[in-house]
Simulated scan of single mutants.
Amino acid sequence: MGKNPGKQKLKRRHHTVPRLLLRRFADGERLVRVPLDGGEPMLVGVGDVTVRRDFYSMRTEDGQLDDTVENLLSDLEGQAAPVIRKIIQERLWPLPVGDRAILGQWIAAQHVRIPAVRQANNEIFDQLTKIMVAAGGKPEMRRLLEEQSGEPVTDEEVEAMWDEMTDFNSYDAELSVNDQMLMMGRSMETAYDAMMNRSWGLCRFERKTLLLSDHPVTLMRDPRQPEWRGVGLANAAAILVPIDRRAAIFMQPPGIPDHELPASTRVARELNHRFAWNSRIELFHHPEDNPLDGIELPPVRSYEAEFSQTAEDFVRPDGLTETA
């Protein structure tokens, strides 16, 4: 049988950093990949880095892969490309309202589409799931087992499942990709609103160059905030986004018009330090550049969320009715 000419091929290789941005740091289709695990920097192709199979693919009700999200991200990339060209080639700044909105959507997508966000969601979901198991105890375990089987279960069956489910290190609870994509969509709306309400500054470099993190949007902590509070879109002193090897956007608290910021060697080094330390496993730069000169690389980041208590702290075999 022949192929259906009206059916488009499913996209399976998904870039977590868009090729539009990678090419801005490349010599044609090549750029330098610097791994954080101590490996040697290597010249690689734009099409071969930050690729994860089916990363944005949802599942339909009949179990088939659906690349709608990947197509939407590609469409957004196509809209953002001419805006970035205007900034870099035509030196347009500030941006007209329409172009600013397109670039804001694209940057918001970069903030939420990264693997770190998915990992953080899974780490939080895993922790909450295990706490619910621990606090519910054997009574809740029995209820769930009987709900699944539709009939009474024995004490031995409850005990076996309790032992298995309270061996918390033996398994990880993860959200489905469909749930992750729904969360990504909601988070993108929130990120877009937060970014559009800020004042945008552009810093252009004539001699110095920038690097690109595998997680391109960097939140700059406000030094006046206590360390325990953390940093997010709402309280960040600035949101830093490289859009080219010689240009970066600063999103600052509202109150002043969009503007251009003076560039200097010190500013370039500070940006590259922050971009490097926002990386998780790798970073990239143009083959002719040396933006890492004098910058110590961070270790590979193995987790995203920190918890003051673990599920073990909530174990109640008899459930929440147990007296202290």
Rank of each mutant, 00 (worst) to 15 (best):
G136E: 11
E312H: 12
D66C: 11
G2I: 13
V158K: 08
Q252H: 13
M141G: 00
L145A: 10
R113F: 11
L261W: 06
E156S: 11
D318M: 14
K9M: 05
E70R: 06
V158R: 11
A173R: 04
V267Y: 06
M188R: 13
L43E: 15
R221I: 03
L76R: 05
R269Y: 03
G104T: 14
S187K: 08
E90N: 11
L212T: 03
Q148M: 09
R85F: 00
P94T: 08
Q148C: 02
D163A: 08
L261D: 08
L31R: 14
L144E: 06
S279M: 07
K86A: 15
G104D: 07
V315C: 01
L76I: 05
L292M: 13
S264D: 06
T166V: 10
V241R: 00
A305C: 12
G319T: 07
I295H: 08
D75S: 11
P317H: 03
I84Q: 00
A173W: 03
E306C: 03
D293L: 14
E296R: 14
P291I: 15
R221E: 08
M183D: 06
L76S: 10
A135H: 11
L21N: 08
N278D: 15
H286K: 09
L240R: 07
G78Y: 01
I281N: 10
A80N: 10
T218V: 15
R13T: 01
W106K: 00
D67A: 11
Q119L: 10
A234Q: 10
A109S: 15
M196Y: 09
Y192K: 07
V46F: 15
P226R: 12
V231A: 02
E61F: 07
I102L: 15
R245Y: 11
D214K: 05
M220Q: 14
A237K: 11
M183P: 04
P242N: 03
P41R: 15
I281Y: 09
M183F: 13
G38Y: 06
C203F: 01
A81Y: 04
L10M: 12
L233W: 02
R316S: 10
Q252I: 06
M132K: 02
Q309G: 00
L283N: 07
N278F: 05
P226E: 11
R207Y: 07
S187P: 02
H259T: 12
R246C: 14
L283F: 05
K11C: 03
T190N: 12
T218D: 01
R91M: 01
A234D: 10
V112H: 01
P94Y: 03
V32L: 15
G38C: 07
P262L: 12
G201Q: 06
D99F: 00
E227Q: 11
L297K: 13
L10F: 09
T265V: 11
R100F: 00
N4Y: 04
I239L: 13
A237Y: 04
V133Y: 07
E29T: 13
G6I: 00
G185S: 10
P94V: 07
A101M: 06
Q64A: 14
F314V: 04
S302A: 13
L210F: 15
I84M: 14
P139L: 07
V177W: 03
R19A: 10
A263S: 15
E260N: 05
L175Q: 07
R301W: 02
E156H: 10
